[in-house]
Design a protein around this nucleic acid. Structure first.
Lengths: 101, 101
DNA sequence: TCGATAGTTCGATATTTTTCGAACTTTGGC
DNA sequence: GCCAAAGTTCGAAAAATATCGAACTATCGA
């Protein structure tokens, strides 16, 4: 299985990150990965079809926000916390929900 | 002239902000307003037609990122720095360009 | 009042994203 | 080897955005 390209930390583009996070489903995925840690796609899919979920994970992956590894038959997605923090310090903190949201 | 609605500080939505900033032209406008302060639309238009520039300023305005006031025949656009900082602390700092961009 | 300047709005087209089903791939278990 | 589970890829259709010219609006100055 060919893997989607994953930008290196210093190749992560701010425009791509912003675009990835401008979708409510993807923003929520990032928040949950931040809070709950690594998750399978399935664990985060709402009621949407797998092809749609897969699409959104791909956008996050290509933007450089998440990394995916195989774990048996499932794929575990993790936030690239350190890479993002290094490239854009403070960005992840902005993404986390606060009281009045 | 009817004015586009401008969200109150606590109505600014993160998704909208991210969408607004996911476009290279708009991101650059925000950066320049941050560095150079209030500017007319004209001062920031590249070589694009006015209708396109106006569209992008509107997206920024409706996302809550800028405020526009009339100054004679021109319209001056200012970053809503304090409002954004209050709503999403640290976000503007992420937007500012750094060495390896 | 007449221009000229600086934007805005409208409408049509083009481009980009999103959505979703169907077919396909990979891995693990029997 | 075969089947099921978990995703991915493909393709087509729908929805959202962007682009640009033309017409319109508001304000200033002569």
């Amino acid at each position: 299985m060919r893997h989607a390209r994953l930008p290196a930390s210093d190749e992560i583009a701010l425009e791509d990150v912003f675009h990835a996070l401008s979708d409510p489903f993807r923003l929520e995925v990032v928040r949950r990965l931040a809070v709950e840690g690594e998750q399978s796609c399935q664990a985060l899919e709402g009621d949407r079809p797998k092809s749609s979920v897969s699409h959104h994970f791909r956008v996050l992956r290509e933007a450089g926000l998440i990394r995916t590894r195989n774990e048996g038959v499932t794929r575990m997605n993790a936030l690239r916390r350190d890479d993002i923090e290094q490239r854009f310090p403070g960005l992840l903190a902005c993404v986390m929900p606060r009281s009045n949201d």
